[in-house]
Design a protein around this nucleic acid. Structure first.
Length: 523
RNA sequence: GGUGCUAUCGUCUAGUGGCCUAGGACAACGGCCUCUCACGCCGUAAACCCCGGUUCGAGUCCGGGUAGCACUACCA
């Protein structure tokens, strides 16, 4: 029987959600939606020492911002969200979706493995193992070495249980049989074969914190939660054979999920996996949202705070490792859901190209209406004006109009300020380079004459002004470029900006004349 | 060191034996447009890791090198 597709995203709450993790979540989501399946979110907090407060909320909020919806497990409560609160809810029939709250379940399965002889107790302390690794190069806890260690295989079950009774700390290790080729079928890479000799007897459970390790918890939960496809990063490929062995030891091979190991996101320069540090070093975010780490006090920048649109981040990330046939680059979430396929995920790692990310954002920005952008830009604009001590009510229609004139020059909403500040604030100084190049000896004379001409002008429309000024320039033979550029410097403070009549239109007669007068005095 | 994965312009990639004198996009550079700066448009430069084999024919299939990456924890 064909089971309903069910995938999971299972992050650890050890800090902000890395952009690579976001892509993993995205691919899982696209796959689930395409197959009318279920997207589950589970928190893998089996390492109590690495827990970071707030990380769970962060992960859920980030996915919510990006439009990656969760069907089962942990997610943001919509009603609370609408009211501006962050509240986590748990949806589904599989008990808790936090592994730290599933201890009793893991106990049952650890015992099952112990009873069936697939696992054993081990008492070697971390220090002893550390010493062993120093002493013997390439030491590995496996079939070759386990009979020389402190465990229930060498000590006997009775003695082992006695030690446990006495409160001695122990772990449970998986007993890997040697000399066997383990086959893993990967949806992206095909068949991968690894000999069990290179696998070690992985720790499945640690009594110190009464928690399983990733490997055990992961397999048990995926089985219990009826996961059909495990889509995760390539760093898990080497341990996939171990997972196959675990499914087999439990007798679950018939419902074992299909695996797909995603290529890694690499550093933009040099080599290696993209890391948190690269963001700081190269000056771009590696996290979706800004994160204030309560544990170490660090603050990491986020895509949202940098002015990115969630759909741009999604589009950018989707194409980092996946590409359809053909040349299409702009994809909506719906298009991605329709066209995504694991078969077309590339096998090689992708270097993270931040410049291209900016371009994606630009594409989405110019697609948005001026009104929509004005809505987003208003707070930015108001803050800048406040900082400059300007307390003037700004008309949103004007803002939208101005944005329409300059939006194709920017990648991000906050950048609009540099492109349009002169519409709202008169220049207080004049760009030296522009002055050198465009402010000629005759410019004061030209501006004085232009001022007189404009003062008499009633109709302030672009057409009227053009019809007035151009013939005058031509008649006097001043040269269009010379007059217009000087005029522009008066209004803008530099040789840049949209068409001059678009500027005078927004400024209005009074402000235009005032700026020319000011320039005449100051330059 | 061991094991595994991977390999097309600087980067993301298209390419599934003849459509490839290898296509698109970002970035770079040049030109056009123009009152400026941008946008836009047009163009330039830029790649099949190496060596063998299979084949009439290989970027595409096979083998071997090489390089890069990942893993090698009582982390995930």
């Amino acid at each position: 029987m064909e089971r309903q597709v069910k995938v999971r995203f299972a992050p650890s709450p050890t800090g902000a959600l890395h952009i690579g993790g976001v892509r993993t979540a995205l691919y899982n989501y696209l796959f689930a939606r395409q197959h009318n399946g279920v997207m589950l979110l589970r928190i893998e907090d089996t390492d109590s020492t690495r827990f970071v407060p707030g990380a769970e909320e962060y992960i859920l909020e980030a996915l919510d911002w990006l439009g990656i919806e969760i069907d089962e497990g942990l997610r943001l409560n919509r009603k609370a969200k609408a009211e501006g609160r962050i509240e986590i809810e748990s949806v589904g029939e599989n008990g808790s979706y936090r592994q730290s709250e599933r201890r009793e379940i893991y106990h049952i399965y650890v015992k099952q493995l112990l009873d069936s002889g697939h696992a054993y107790y081990a008492f070697d302390t971390p220090e002893e193992l550390e010493a062993k690794r120093k002493e013997i190069p390439n030491f590995q806890y496996d079939a070759r070495t386990r009979m020389q260690m402190q465990n229930s295989l060498t000590l006997g079950l009775e003695e082992s249980l006695r030690r446990i009774e006495n409160g001695e700390k122990y772990v449970v290790r998986f007993k890997v049989d040697p000399d066997e080729d383990v086959h893993v079928q990967d949806l992206i890479r095909g068949e991968v074969v690894i000999n069990s000799n290179i696998l070690d007897d992985k720790v499945l459970y640690k009594s110190a914190d009464d928690l399983p390790t990733y490997h055990l918890a992961n397999i048990v939960d995926d089985h219990l939660m009826e996961i059909t496809h495990v889509i995760r990063g390539e760093e898990w490929l080497p341990s996939a054979p171990l997972h196959v062995l675990l499914y087999r030891a439990f007798g679950w091979q018939d419902t074992m999920p299909r695996f797909a190991h995603l290529p890694l996101l690499l550093k933009p320069d040099g080599n290696g996996k993209l890391s948190k540090r690269d963001g700081d070093r190269l000056g771009f975010p590696v996290f979706p949202l800004e994160f204030h780490n309560q544990k170490d006090g660090t603050v990491s920048s986020g895509y949202r705070e940098s002015g990115y649109f969630p759909e741009a981040v999604i589009n950018f990330l989707a194409l980092l490792g996946w590409h359809n046939t053909g040349d299409q680059e702009i994809y909506s979430m719906d298009e991605l859901i329709e066209q995504f396929s694991l078969e077309r995920v590339s096998k090689a790692g992708a270097k993270f190209d931040y410049e291209k990310g900016k371009w994606f954002n630009h594409q989405y920005l110019i697609q948005k209406s001026d009104e929509e952008l004005a809505e987003l830009f208003m707070p930015v604009l108001e803050k800048h004006l406040r900082d400059l001590g300007v307390s003037r009510a700004i008309d949103k229609t004007t803002v939208a109009k101005v944005i329409g004139l300059v939006k194709d020059r920017v990648n991000f909403v906050p950048e609009l300020w540099e492109q349009c500040n002169f519409f709202f604030v008169a220049p207080t100084e004049y760009d030296e380079k522009s002055l050198q190049k465009r402010w000629k000896e005759d410019s004061p004379k030209h501006m004085t004459e232009l001022l007189a001409l404009l003062e008499k002008q009633e109709d302030w429309s672009a057409e009227a002004l053009d019809g007035l000024v151009m013939p005058w320039i031509n008649e006097k033979e001043y040269g269009v470029g010379i007059v217009m550029n000087a005029f522009r410097i008066c209004l803008v403070g530099a040789a840049r900006g949209p068409h001059i009549w678009a500027i005078t239109d927004v400024l209005g007669k009074e402000e235009t004349l005032r700026r020319v007068k000011t320039a005449l005095q100051k330059i």
